[in-house]
Computed example of a mutant assay.
Amino acid sequence: MENRNNFAFGRKNFIIMFVGILVLAIGFVIMTMDNEQYGLGFMGITLGPIVVLLGFAIEFFAIFYKDKPNV
């Protein structure tokens, strides 16, 4: 009898998703650390959103990542 995993994502997918969530959180923290009024400095307008977009790209990759089958 074959022991088959019925989950849509594997262990690597969840690890990549967790990394993506951490990057998203870091991006939002970077945006809040801006000292300019209303967050209109470099960190609030440029660096933070770029890091958040990177986090979303990691999440997108984690969803579509597929392990190679063990032969």
Results as ranks from 00 to 15, higher is better:
Glu2Ala: 15
Asn3Leu: 14
Asn3Val: 12
Asn3His: 14
Arg4His: 10
Asn5Val: 13
Asn5Cys: 12
Asn6Tyr: 07
Asn6Lys: 06
Asn6Ala: 03
Asn6Trp: 03
Phe7Ser: 14
Phe7Val: 03
Phe7Pro: 00
Ala8Asn: 12
Gly10Ile: 12
Gly10Ser: 14
Gly10His: 13
Gly10Arg: 14
Arg11Asp: 10
Arg11Met: 11
Lys12Phe: 00
Lys12Gln: 05
Ile15Arg: 04
Ile15Lys: 02
Ile15Ser: 00
Ile16Asp: 01
Ile16Pro: 02
Met17Gln: 07
Met17Ile: 10
Met17Thr: 09
Met17Cys: 09
Val19Arg: 05
Val19His: 04
Gly20Ser: 06
Gly20Ala: 09
Leu22Lys: 08
Val23Gln: 05
Val23His: 00
Leu24Trp: 04
Ala25Lys: 08
Ala25Met: 14
Ala25Gly: 15
Ile26Val: 12
Phe28Ser: 07
Phe28Lys: 08
Val29Arg: 14
Ile30Val: 15
Thr32Leu: 14
Thr32Asn: 14
Met33Ala: 13
Met33Phe: 11
Met33Leu: 13
Asp34Gly: 09
Asn35Ser: 12
Asn35Cys: 10
Asn35Gly: 11
Asn35Lys: 12
Gln37Glu: 04
Gln37Phe: 03
Gln37Lys: 02
Tyr38Lys: 09
Tyr38Gln: 10
Gly39His: 01
Leu40Pro: 01
Gly41Asp: 07
Gly41Cys: 07
Gly41Asn: 08
Phe42Ser: 08
Phe42Tyr: 15
Met43Arg: 13
Met43Asn: 12
Met43Asp: 11
Gly44Leu: 01
Gly44Ser: 04
Ile45Phe: 10
Ile45His: 06
Ile45Asn: 06
Thr46Lys: 15
Leu47Val: 15
Leu47Ala: 15
Gly48Pro: 10
Gly48Ala: 12
Gly48Thr: 11
Pro49Glu: 05
Pro49Met: 05
Ile50Ser: 11
Val51Lys: 07
Val51Leu: 08
Val52Trp: 02
Leu53Glu: 06
Leu53Phe: 08
Leu53Asp: 07
Leu53Lys: 05
Leu54Pro: 03
Leu54Cys: 08
Gly55Pro: 06
Phe56Ser: 03
Ala57Asp: 00
Ala57Tyr: 01
Ile58Glu: 05
Ile58Asp: 02
Ile58Thr: 07
Ile58Pro: 00
Glu59Thr: 12
Glu59Lys: 13
Phe61Lys: 03
Ile63Arg: 01
Ile63Pro: 03
Ile63His: 02
Phe64Gln: 08
Phe64Asn: 09
Tyr65Met: 02
Tyr65Gly: 02
Lys68Phe: 00
Lys68His: 06
Lys68Gly: 04
Pro69Asp: 06
Pro69Thr: 00
Asn70Trp: 07
Asn70Pro: 03
Asn70Phe: 10
Val71Gln: 03
Val71Trp: 03
